[in-house]
Simulated scan of single mutants.
Amino acid sequence: MGFEVVKPGILSTLQDVGRYGYRKHGVIVSGPMDRFAHRTANLLAANTAEAATLEMTLQGLCLVAHREMLIAICGADMGAEVDGRSAPLWRPFIIDEGSELQFRYAVQGCRAYLAVHGGFRADPVLGSGSTYLRAGMGGYQGRALEAGDVLQVEDVVAGGFTVAEGEQELRSKFVSTNIRPPYQDNPVIRIVRGREKDLFTSSSWSKLLTQRYQVTTQSDRMGYRLSGEAELELQDGLSFEMISEAVATGTIQVPQSGQPILLMADCQTTGGYPRIGHVITADLPLVAQVKPGGFLRFQEITHREAQEQLLLQEMDLKLLEAGTRAWMRETGVWINRKGNGGHAAH
């Protein structure tokens, strides 16, 4: 047993890396909105990226720990507290059995991720435990968490870790701000041109890159509906209705309203609106942390630059992973998993 849910928050779900290999059958990928925060929290909790984390949106939940655990919180600052004392972000720490972990409204960002060593136990569907609410599958019974739910933890022996130099040593280690995404309420998001970009008027492309877009309250895990001062227009004689083609997380579609829709983690597999642009993968965490009411601005870069940014982000995560493992070995953070005989985390 891991945690019991006392208060569920606004929207709390279990997410792993996502459900891949089934898009051709119309099954979406899902997974975390902020993949950087999800992956980093898992690294700090000595997990692989595939382990399920708890994603909280806008307002976090209240949990009671049913055993001592090594955990980490990354992403939005939701004023987390353990038994009334401030809990750290972007660093591992130990929560004692019986302690209460309370999250509040997000003061910075929109989504926070809680990882526990071993990972949360999620219902697997088509190879993934990610929650897809519209289909009612994965996660915890295919739904958002509710008061009274009990979250199990995978593959951990009770009391299976010790910290040689005490919890203060854990608290002294954190993820450098140099590699964290620069979360902002009104970020500049880099995009590449979409396949149907040339169907739009030249002034529409200019509008996309110069005006700011508000994230409306009609936004969710499927997509952000954006609102700008000027509508985007197609060239004369062209229609917004087209034969459906593939879309993905980050695709910017433009419906008849002329106001863009930015597709997110739970987006459909195909769409019938022209694709004017696509948010680069490295900037999707920035988008995921913008609350409804916040604003986005877009900046065009090349495909090569987009690939370079993704490689740099991946290098940062690989270095973080290597550093975390080395530090755990050197300072005596020993984690017993089933069958590993009590060796240091790896």
Results as ranks from 00 to 15, higher is better:
Q214H: 06
E229Q: 13
G160Q: 02
G223K: 04
R225L: 04
S244A: 12
G272I: 00
V254Y: 06
Y224F: 14
S176Y: 08
I191W: 06
G271R: 02
S257V: 05
F174H: 09
T251E: 05
G159H: 00
T177E: 15
S176R: 10
V192C: 12
K207E: 12
T270Q: 09
F200W: 02
G250H: 09
I261N: 05
P187V: 09
I243G: 07
F240S: 05
A230T: 14
S219H: 09
G160K: 00
T177I: 10
K197A: 14
A248Q: 12
D198E: 15
A248H: 10
E196I: 03
K173Y: 15
V163Y: 01
S204I: 01
D198A: 11
R180N: 06
I179D: 08
F240W: 03
D236E: 15
Q253H: 09
V163F: 00
D198G: 02
A246N: 08
R190Y: 07
A246P: 02
T177H: 13
E154K: 13
S219R: 09
S206W: 04
P181G: 05
L151H: 05
G159M: 00
D236M: 05
S204C: 01
Q218D: 14
L208Y: 03
G237Q: 04
Q253Y: 03
G166L: 00
Y183S: 08
Q168N: 10
G228P: 01
R180K: 13
Q214A: 14
S206K: 10
L238Q: 13
S203T: 11
V175L: 09
E165C: 08
A230W: 07
R195M: 12
G271M: 02
D220P: 00
L262F: 02
L199M: 15
P274E: 04
Q152Y: 11
S204H: 00
A248I: 14
S172Q: 12
E165I: 03
L199R: 15
T249E: 14
R221H: 12
I261Y: 04
E154W: 09
V150I: 15
I191S: 09
L209T: 11
L199I: 02
Q268S: 06
E231H: 10
L238W: 06
P187K: 08
G159N: 01
L238A: 08
G160T: 02
Y213N: 06
V157G: 04
P181K: 02
F174E: 12
A265R: 11
E241S: 14
T201F: 03
R193S: 10
Q218Y: 12
Y213W: 15
T201I: 04
P181D: 06
E169T: 12
C267E: 04
R221Q: 11
Q256F: 09
R180M: 12
S172V: 01
S227V: 07
P255T: 03
S244H: 04
D220E: 00
Q152K: 12
E167S: 11
R171S: 07
D185E: 15
V215C: 03
T177F: 10
V192P: 06
E165M: 07
E231L: 11
V163P: 02
P187L: 09
E241M: 11
S219L: 10
S227E: 14
R180V: 06
T201C: 10
F200P: 03
I261Q: 07
M242W: 01
T249F: 06
E229G: 08
L170P: 01
N178V: 09
